[in-house]
Nucleic acid binder design. Structure first.
Length: 818
RNA sequence: GCGGCUGUGGCGGAAUUGGUAGACGCGCAGGCUUCAGGUGCCUGUGGGCUUCGGCCCGUGGAGGUUCAAGUCCUCUCAGCCGCACCA
């Protein structure tokens, strides 16, 4: 094979050549005109945050998405596969403070880097729809969206206890606080009482939970969202304090244990705590305790393992089910922002209440039978409660007790959520301005739609000072009220970047529209996203916010669907030596290094071949060389076979011998790759199947006919195309002169998937003793008889009784002997 | 504590409804091509024993169901992720 040494697989030449074709012909652009009879497919990878250069995770993300996009195109769908940049945000601004480089400039530089790399990777993007969320032509509509929500009361301004990051000098959403620390900089957050902007996401708590049932998302992501929303059902029960004549409702998931309540606890932040203690001997102690708790850190207070602390209030409340007076306490294990800020304590059946009762020597009462020791939190019949309920199973009793309280007007069924409203305002510069004007006479006035966008002004000082840097832009801040024309001031806070990214997938559908955020007709043609691909780190934040926005827009009447992402795939992280790659660890690897060395196709294939794409995997330099070797083998075999002349990829009519083996393997590979792509994202095994086909090609190289070889290699090129588009296109072109992306996805011929002989395994007592070939259509009796004939089987059944025979046609025979 | 995921050769990983464990790749060993460079092609490669016919062991661990278990059930260990004093 003298040609082998002459022809070298040269991605440096191949890749730019095909990229030029796709660029010149705008191959991956799609129009918005209706096309009857063609199924649409909207394939989307999460948009990148442009900070520095793209990393390996981006390469993997776009490699996966591109494989899906290509596969969908070649299986007859019209594919929308756009790209954009989540360009606003803190890192660009912090970078600006550090280096003096303007956020606008550093962001632009990073976007240019992404554009360069994405083209160099050969990703099939419709560039005509590209935008950055920081461009006025985009955020004009982000502001419009904000106003839509504002006008329906879904965006509101309110004073509340909020998370404040002292380092970044801005408030944060609950979702951005991890273990009591800022998710960006790791600084411990403080709780401040501030007036801020919120989206009323809690109105959608139930809808967000229920909608999960209708979407094809990984179960663990759904679970995370359900846990985050944290729906608990129970009852609200009112306790009265006769000394002051005040009433305190509590939320409980266990009204069945009401008869076991032996004390009552309020959160230190509860507005009535000081008033209750006033005039009692505990007044000073309560004041001290409340002041002490106020100084406590998030982390300290959140530790469930530390000893319970608290102080008596010197008052008591009446348990509405039995009229018993129980003492009141203030303790920091009760939180103001969940439920009502007060609880009934049932130490017999709750660990925390039990711990508190032990520390303060309070009575512990058993009202549910079961378990050996208290506290017992399981199910069981009621005891020592009330003759009407004693003996009933606790779940049954729960319903009965709530119904009875409801009758008496002392309680009612209730549902509580862990989810809080989405705090969206930020006291930072590099974000979308909130399109609101503060007028002394009219209050909060929306900027009229025809005056959008409210453009982000240039400022010189980004340093966070506890108020938005925009406040320093006096000329910009000063304006007139759109309603009354009086002197007014602009809102100076900007929006959380998660607002920008909560709707970008809608804008791609109609990115060039200057009249509206989108044309409903056009949106109907593309939305929702059929396949969304990205990292799990967005399981809650971005994915829940987007779902909320889409549901809200649907209710407003602007959309006719209510889930943005029909299917979600979460890719695993690429780690280095088992650790997450990061600048600080110095263990980053750059895609450029590997694209330079092996080409984009190799780097792309490797990120998918390394392991199941949804799993975390460790990068190994040795393994990527193996993938490069494979692409070289495929390409050289194609170049070699193409030496016999170009022709269409067609299988020989009636192959025999080596030809038949080769044609069969090709059809097997078609079937394998197709099922791996359709049913699941098993790209690793799909690529392995193409490797097997190429290996088979080499195996039969000197014996198979040129026709059979040609068909097998052209099939391999066709199948590898979604993963290695340049190598696939080039090999296919060498063999056929055709463009592989214009060819329909190959179809497996069932005649070649079935074999006329199959290997039968013979087991004796479940252990494999022999194998033999039998006609595929052989009957049970024939197979069993043949199995018994095998010498090694004979040796194992000789002199024993065959008590049972199991025959699985086409697979095995199991002889059970005694 | 609650919820979820993962444990398979020296390594990454295959095994679609229980039916040949280890596909494919890496690594390693040997061979071939006048082969000087991040080469190419071929063969072998779970462990142990072997009279070279085979035999025994083997999917984190212990039980169980079944003719048959990596796969199903029970318990258990280890690691990772999410939530966490949420009443």
């Amino acid at each position: 094979m003298s040609t082998e040494t002459e022809r070298r697989y040269d991605p440096e030449a191949i890749e730019p050549r095909w990229q030029a074709v796709w660029e010149r012909e705008r191959t991956w652009e799609v129009g918005n005109d209706a096309e009857a009879g063609t199924e649409k497919s909207y394939v989307l990878e999460m948009l990148p945050y442009p900070s520095g250069e793209p990393h390996m995770g981006h390469l993997k993300n776009y490699a996966i998405g591109d494989a899906v996009a290509h596969f969908h195109r070649r299986t007859g769908r019209r594919v929308l596969h756009p790209m954009g940049y989540d360009a606003f945000g803190l890192p660009a601004e912090n970078h600006a403070i550090r280096t003096g480089e303007l956020p606008r400039d550093s962001t632009a530089a990073s976007i240019a880097a992404f554009q360069r790399q994405l083209r160099r990777w050969g990703v099939s993007i419709d560039w005509s729809r590209e935008f950055g969320t920081h461009e006025p032509r985009y955020y004009r509509w982000t502001q419009w969206l904000f106003l839509q929500l504002f006008e329906r009361g879904l965006a509101y301004r309110n004073e509340a206890a909020v998370n404040w990051c002292p380092k970044d000098a801005t408030v944060l959403a609950n979702e951005q606080v991890i273990d009591g620390r800022c998710e960006r900089c790791g600084t411990e957050v403080e709780i401040k009482q501030l007036e801020q902007w919120f989206f009323r996401i809690t109105d959608y708590a139930d809808a967000l939970i229920d909608g999960l049932d209708d979407i094809a998302w990984p179960e663990h992501v759904k679970t995370m969202q359900r846990n985050w929303i944290g729906r608990s059902t129970g009852a609200e029960v009112t306790f009265e304090c006769p000394e002051l004549g005040t009433e305190y409702p509590v939320f409980t998931t266990r009204p069945d244990t009401l008869f076991g309540a032996t004390f009552f606890v309020m959160a230190p932040e509860h507005p009535d705590v000081l008033r209750l203690a006033t005039g009692t001997p505990h007044e000073a102690a309560v004041q001290d305790y409340v002041a002490h708790v106020a100084r406590e850190g998030h982390e300290e207070r959140g530790d469930a393992d530390r000893a319970k602390t608290g102080v008596p209030l010197g008052r008591s409340v009446v348990n509405p089910v039995n009229g018993e007076r129980i003492p009141m306490f203030v303790a920091d294990y009760v939180l103001m922002d969940y439920g009502t800020g007060a609880i009934m304590a049932v130490p017999g059946h709750d660990q925390r209440d039990f711990d508190f009762a032990t520390a303060f020597d309070l009575p512990v009462r058993r009202v549910i039978e079961g378990g050996e020791e208290l506290p017992y939190t399981g199910d069981g019949p009621l005891t020592d409660s009330d003759p009407r309920f004693d003996g009933l199973g606790n779940r049954e009793a729960l319903e009965a007790i709530v119904a009875w309280l409801d009758d008496q007007g002392r309680g009612h069924p209730s549902i509580n959520y862990r989810l809080r409203d989405w705090l969206l305002s930020r006291q930072r510069y590099w974000g979308c301005p909130i399109p609101i004007v503060h007028c002394d006479a009219c209050g909060l006035v929306p900027v009229p739609e025809d005056q959008l966008p409210v453009e982000l002004p240039d400022v010189t000082d980004y340093t966070p000072q506890g108020r938005s840097p925009l406040a320093a832009a006096e000329a910009w801040v000063t304006t007139t009220c759109p309603r009354c024309g009086a002197h007014a001031r602009r809102e100076t806070d900007t929006m959380d970047t998660f607002v920008d990214s909560s709707w970008y997938f809608l804008r791609y559908c109609d990115a060039g529209n200057d009249e509206a955020a989108w044309d409903p007709e056009v949106l109907r043609r593309w939305a929702p996203v059929d396949q969304y691909i990205g990292g799990v780190e967005h399981a809650i934040l971005h994915l829940m916010y987007s779902r909320f926005v889409v549901k809200a827009l649907r209710d407003i009447g602007l959309l006719d669907f209510d889930e943005p992402f029909a299917r979600l795939f979460t890719q695993g992280m690429i780690t280095r030596d088992g650790a997450k790659m990061s600048k600080s660890k110095g263990n980053q690897i750059s895609p450029t290094t590997y694209v330079d060395r092996y080409g984009a196709d190799t780097a792309r294939c490797y990120t998918m071949f390394i392991g199941p794409p949804d799993q975390d995997v460790d990068w190994r330099d040795d393994d990527i060389a193996g993938v490069h070797r494979f692409l070289g083998r495929l390409w050289r075999l194609a170049a070699d076979v193409a030496g016999a002349g170009r022709r269409p990829a067609e299988a020989p009519d009636a192959p025999e011998g080596a030809d038949l083996e080769l044609v069969r393997k090709a059809h097997w590979a078609i079937d394998k790759v197709t099922t791996d792509m359709v049913g699941r994202f098993a790209f690793n095994t799909a690529i392995a199947a193409v490797m097997e086909l190429v290996n088979e090609g080499y195996k039969h190289r000197d014996v198979a006919s040129p026709e059979a070889q040609h068909f097998a290699v052209a099939t391999a090129a066709s199948l590898i195309f979604p993963f290695a588009p340049h190598a696939g296109a080039d090999a296919y072109d060498l063999l056929t002169g055709d463009r592989v992306w214009e060819q329909p996805w190959p179809a497996a011929d069932s005649r070649f998937l079935e074999r006329d002989t199959v290997q039968i395994v013979v087991q004796v007592n479940g252990k494999v003793r022999d194998r033999f070939d039998a006609p595929a259509d052989a009957g049970r009796e024939a197979v069993e008889a043949a199995a018994r004939e095998r010498p090694n089987v004979q040796a194992h059944i000789d002199g024993k009784d065959v008590v049972k025979v199991v025959v699985v046609p086409g697979r095995l025979v199991n002889l059970v002997v005694r």
